[in-house]
Write a protein that binds this DNA or RNA. Structure first.
Lengths: 205, 205
DNA sequence: AAGATAATAAACAACATGTCGTTTTATTAT
DNA sequence: ATAATAAAACGACATGTTGTTTATTATCTT
């Protein structure tokens, strides 16, 4: 049996469908998309769509999971390495060193990220992203940098606060269409996360 | 012509449809809802639905706008009064005095808020909520408490950060189903916003 | 109680869905 | 280069939802 994943036609078809999806989400929002829309845009027969995906939700889910998996392998897996490289030298530089590759990844997948996180996107993707960031927050603090007894607020709220705040900044950034570099966004977000939004607003000390 | 808004039948029908909407969003998500689902749950004829709403999107939009309008009239309009009452005594208490009524309002509309902000909810409602919070942030700082020249980060990112962080905490809170009071949530969120999430995590000073 | 009007039941065309079997076309492996 | 193989295109199908419209019934207002 020839590997189905290697056939050029399969690769072309799937890529074409995914590009159509990204374009159509931005144009009319995911809810409004029909399978007919997708296949017309992708220049394939409608029946062909059903060979690869059960329905449009299956397509969306697979795109999201692919993105998150890549994020985990390219960003999450590198966190321990980044920490090991820095902890002897400058422990304060760790958050920056972790965030920059994250924002670089987002920048490379701007199209899909913007569609999924945009005003016509998919709430459940935000949930997946938050779960990813929850992992990142825990993995990047090996041992016990975050000690339960030191917390001034319940841990779930702390994680929700940080994760949502970051997603909000990412959404804003994606709308600015390439004005700020990943490094600049990392600096902006860390100013608010480390010193607090009030300090960043010039309202403290 | 007798006012359609005062007829008992109309009130009953519309209320029934809205309750069906809330229940069905939580059960299967807004996208999956059909008009048939709504009218079956609401115990009305399918044709009747179209007398009151153009389609399910029209229904959703009207529910959202009604909620936001009420928020504006009950929460936003009171901000200047709250500030006037407190600014001579304790200016630091202002954020708390503004947040508590906000969370109390959310608590009173738990059902709809949970459905709209939940994992099967509507992204565009988050956008509307953020716009509301943007207004609240600006209105609650009359004159020039937030001065452009004092900002350490671009203002759009500051607002996005704060608004999204708050929404994240609200989502978490709505899932905890009534464990914390509005006052407790206000304290939790202000600890993080004023001192910063890092400080709240026990990672600073 | 009488008149007004909202809700119902039933039917309609238009359209999207998911699934076929068949034919054509492109790719792979020999 | 070519035969074998797999993918894509095509056309058709039953099914379900949508939004509208009709005559009829039930309910509210005054």
């Amino acid at each position: 049996m020839g590997d189905m994943n290697l056939d050029l036609r399969v690769i072309r078809t799937r890529e074409s469908i995914k590009n159509a999806l990204i374009a159509l989400i931005e144009e009319k929002g995911f809810e409004a998309i029909t399978v007919k829309d997708l296949t017309a845009r992708a220049r394939i027969n409608r029946g062909t769509f059903y060979i690869h995906y059960q329905d449009k939700y299956d397509l969306l889910t697979k795109c999201e999971e692919e993105l998150i998996k890549e994020m985990e392998s390219k960003v999450l897996k590198n966190i321990p390495k980044v920490i090991a490289d820095l902890e002897t030298k400058a422990p304060n530089a760790i958050p920056y060193a972790v965030l920059v590759p994250f924002f670089e990844f987002i920048n490379k997948n701007r199209g899909l990220m913007k569609a999924l996180l945009g005003p016509k996107g998919d709430v459940s993707f935000q949930t997946k992203l938050k779960a990813f960031m929850r992992k990142a927050l825990i993995n990047s603090t090996p041992g016990s940098i975050i000690k339960q007894e030191n917390l001034l607020v319940p841990p779930e709220y702390l994680v929700s606060y940080i994760a949502s705040a970051h997603i909000g900044v990412i959404q804003e950034w994606l709308n600015h269409d390439g004005e700020e570099s990943p490094q600049e966004i990392a600096r902006i977000i860390l100013t608010m996360t480390i010193n607090g939004p009030f300090f960043a607003a010039g309202l403290k000390k």
